[in-house]
């Protein structure tokens, strides 16, 4: 069976079966990274271009390693070193990249809309590595993979996503995905950080973290975007961490077996304390590890690999 999607723009467009296909296949790709020779010839001769118009450490490295472990050729371009900085429109830049015949473009971009347009215009595969406040589908997939790996199932899980939901593409993609696989989601934030119309998302919304802590199987903390503080979404970091930070006291009140997640980068001391980030419940580094495997799966599927579930 062929994978029906040329591109991955968002989790919104995937069915729950497709999400499970990705998660199931990821298991075997994860094994490759544990070998002594971490490379298979699957994508030999394929070219993957990484266009990163926003700073990224994890996602970019993760995609690059994923492509390389599948033997694809990769090249990465970031905004500061590209002609984007010289005023070339991104569409022109993308078309120039296309003229060099890549098989796949992985793109991170600060605004919504472009990734969708590229997917419609360019013949190669487009994988969204995060676009504005829209979606970050590979993050949600690696999050779901990690939850399932730790907790055995996704169905019926209670996942609390805490923090700046308003500006979070990670939250949006996770909400789409978790709803599709039958998990329950609670979004926790002060009202200023909840998106307009969140009541139509079909998830629980809470403004207090404490009552949610003992209920959740997963507590996913989102980064507080320090650069947005000037817009006065909350008074200061002290008050924020008092009400919405994950600290030792709250970790102790978590359900047995419940886990702590964070998409990174963390602001230790703001949304999460050292105790919490480094506690035994934390699966933050597992998320990173799984990120490579999930991205291997997606590159493989997007570049024409067969859907293969054992």
């Amino acid at each position: 069976m062929n994978w029906p999607h040329k591109d991955l723009i968002g989790i919104e467009e995937l069915t729950s079966e497709e999400i499970y296909t990705i998660l199931d296949m990821t298991k075997s790709f994860k094994e490759i990274s544990k070998r002594e020779i971490k490379k298979v010839p699957t994508l030999r001769g394929k070219t993957v271009v990484l266009l990163f118009y926003e700073p990224s450490t994890r996602t970019r490295l993760s995609f690059e390693l994923a492509a390389k472990r599948l033997s694809a050729d990769t090249t990465a371009l970031s905004a500061s070193g590209s002609s984007f900085a010289k005023g070339e429109t991104i569409m022109d830049a993308a078309q120039n990249v296309m003229a060099m015949a890549p098989d796949c473009i992985v793109i991170r971009y600060p605004y919504a809309g472009l990734v969708k347009k590229l997917a419609e215009t360019l013949p190669c595969s487009i994988i969204n590595a995060g676009d504005g406040y829209h979606e970050h589908p590979t993050q949600a997939l690696l999050d779901m993979y990690s939850m399932r790996e730790q907790l055995g199932t996704l169905e019926g899980l209670h996942v609390a996503i805490v923090g700046d939901i308003l500006h979070s593409r990670v939250a949006r993609s996770n909400v789409y995905g978790l709803k599709k696989v039958g998990a329950h989601v609670t979004l926790v934030a002060p009202k200023t950080l909840l998106p307009p119309g969140v009541d139509t998302w079909g998830v629980n919304v809470a403004t207090a973290l404490d009552p949610i802590v003992p209920e959740a199987d997963v507590i996913m903390m989102l980064r507080v975007q320090k650069e947005r503080i000037h817009e006065q979404y909350f008074p200061d970091e002290r008050e924020y961490s008092y009400f919405y930070g994950l600290n030792k006291k709250r970790v102790e009140r978590m359900k047995p077996g419940a886990v702590i997640m964070h998409p990174g980068p963390m602001n230790r001391g703001v949304e999460i304390t050292y105790d919490a980030a480094d506690s035994a419940r934390s699966i933050i580094l597992n998320q990173v590890e799984n990120g490579v495997a999930v991205r291997m799966t997606l590159l493989y599927l997007s570049l024409g690999g067969n859907v293969n579930v054992d």
């Binding site: 406040y133 307009p196 119309g197 969140v198």
Partner: peptide, 21 residues
């Protein structure tokens, strides 16, 4: 209106575009 670029509401949140209420 801030940095909004479309009507603020469920659709702006879904499209990931800042809204003008």
């Amino acid at each position: 209106a801030g940095s909004g670029v479309m009507n603020e509401g469920p659709l702006s949140s879904k499209l990931g575009l800042p809204g003008i209420p």
